[in-house]
Design a protein around this nucleic acid. Structure first.
Length: 451
RNA sequence: GCGGUCGUAGCUCAGCGGUAGAGCGCUUGGUUGUGGUCCAAGAUGUCGCGGGUUCAAACCCCGUCGAUCGCCCCA
């Protein structure tokens, strides 16, 4: 090796987070907890490839299209097109739609699946926004018609998942697109898109900001005021309906949406139980969501703003969301497949809490026990001891070389391994185990020992 | 894609014109089989990269790359 070899200075790649072992351990535990909640409702798991054909992704991409990472080989084979055919998926909904269409004949409907994988988007990274991130999705897809039952079940699953993580209180904000669209139609608005885009920013730019944007868009002051009054409606129960009707607009689609949202809120009353104080569900007509394939229920999860749990001024970013779509797989198969689904932005959630210092580091090692190597001649005995403990379900690391005992102990200490096992140093001596927390050390038998 | 800020030891940063420092971390030692504390010694940097100004640049100027915060948009 040359003394002056050139080193490639390691650096973080923006938007592609990675954690130290003690934090990755927490992230892994989260994935397990979320998975357990999903499965407790009978959702099955699938995993789809990281890549899809660009044509498949583009079918529903819309604005997202420019953020797609395409995949090409550095060295294309002769005759192989230089044009990319494959791309990394930017969410899990499109792959799921393709999957359902492709395996249509072999799936049982309503198809309830969960999927926890990374997705990629080539956006400018910033707080709470990454280019590579985990999403934990659940969706229910059915043929022709999907019962409203699921619109209420999914938010409940979502809420339970957040609870399982032991994070600050989360609120699930729910609305229904039909109410807003019907309301705007009732106001005589023909093209609703520009309005919804502006109204969606209420939380970010405030009421005055929204009015200003609407004025710039050429919306009349009367319509703007009425639209604003609508998106400011927020109730912890189904009483939102009276408030909507009090605004004086009559519309059939709107009434249909109200009925649906009432069903959902009525069936989520249990989220307000005492043990959930501080979090829960709220009917929030300001929830709109940008994706245009949502047609009914839309929902978003956010941390509840609360001085004791969440510092003032912290971002009230969405940490999960979803909704109902009439037909997502329509571009893949000649079947009507309505669905309702939602996604937990795990990396965003985890990253935000990391920034706030609210993730308590886990252990640097999963090991329960470090078996000391007294000296080279006793390696076999140490090895047998480790094996015995493992066979009993303990996670056991054996020290890797004949080093001073203080070094072996310091190693256990640094890795946070709770017990150090001492095989005999001389024939006839008993095994001993030391509890690194209490400092207590006593004779033990690997075949029967318990911490 | 567009704007603001910032790039000095593994990490957090000080130094702001005379050729590099602290704290933490790391390595070794404080004797015979035992960690966390303490003490002692030690290793570590083309001061992001390229050019310019100057007798002299980590420091001033220009460019570039990277990071970061915000806009658009979204989990």
């Amino acid at each position: 090796m040359s003394e002056q070899h050139k080193v490639y200075k390691p650096k973080a790649i923006s938007g592609f987070p990675e954690w130290l072992p003690e934090y990755r351990a927490v992230e892994l535990a989260w994935l397990d907890k979320i998975r357990a909640v999903f499965e407790s409702y009978g959702f099955c798991n699938i995993e789809t490839p990281s890549v899809e054909e660009i044509d498949a992704l583009s079918a529903k991409a819309g604005e997202t299209e420019k953020e797609i990472y395409t995949l090409t080989r550095l060295q294309a084979d002769d005759g192989e097109s230089k044009e990319a055919r494959l791309a990394l998926h930017f969410d899990l909904t499109v792959p799921m739609a393709r999957y359902v269409a492709q395996h249509f004949g072999q799936l049982v409907f309503p198809f309830k699946r969960y999927q926890m994988q990374k997705s990629w988007r080539g956006e400018r990274p910033q707080k709470g926004r990454y280019r590579e991130f985990y999403q934990c999705d659940i969706d229910v897809v059915n043929i022709d018609e999907l019962p409203i039952h699921f619109d209420a079940e999914l938010p409940a699953v979502l809420f339970e998942a957040y609870q399982a993580l032991g994070i600050p209180p989360v609120e699930i904000h729910i609305s229904n697109r039909k109410i807003l669209i019907g309301y705007l139609q009732g106001l005589g608005v023909a093209d609703t898109a520009p309005l919804t885009r502006a109204l969606d920013k209420l939380d970010k730019i405030g009421a005055d900001g929204v009015l200003k944007v609407l004025a710039d868009e050429g919306v009349s002051a009367d319509v703007a005021q009425k639209a604003l009054a609508f998106v400011q409606i927020k109730t912890p129960d189904s009483s939102f309906a009276d408030k909507v009707r009090a605004l004086g607009v009559q519309n059939e689609l709107m009434e249909q949406g109200i009925t649906e949202l009432q069903f959902v809120t009525d069936n989520l009353k249990h989220l307000h139980g005492d043990k959930n104080a501080g979090g829960g569900m709220v009917a929030n007509l300001g929830i709109i969501r940008g994706l245009d394939y949502y047609t009914g229920t839309v929902l978003e999860a956010r941390f509840k703003e609360n001085a004791t749990h969440w510092p003032k001024g912290a971002p009230s970013l969405s940490i999960g969301g979803g909704g109902r779509y009439d037909d997502l797989a329509g571009s893949f198969i000649n079947q009507k497949l309505p669905g309702v689904g939602l996604s937990i932005g795990l990396t965003r959630l985890f990253g935000l809490l990391m920034d706030q210092g609210k993730i308590a580091a886990g252990s640097k090692s999963p090991a329960d026990v470090l078996v000391v190597l007294p000296d080279e001649a006793r390696r076999a005995e140490a090895s047998d001891t480790a094996r015995t403990l493992r066979s009993r379900g303990f996670k056991v690391e054996m020290y890797h070389r004949d080093a001073k005992i203080k070094n072996q102990m310091a190693y256990a200490e640094k890795k946070g391994i709770a017990h150090v096992w001492f095989p005999p140093f001389k024939d006839g001596q008993p095994h001993e185990v030391k509890n690194m927390t209490t400092g207590e050390q006593k004779p033990a038998d690997a075949a029967v020992w318990t911490p």
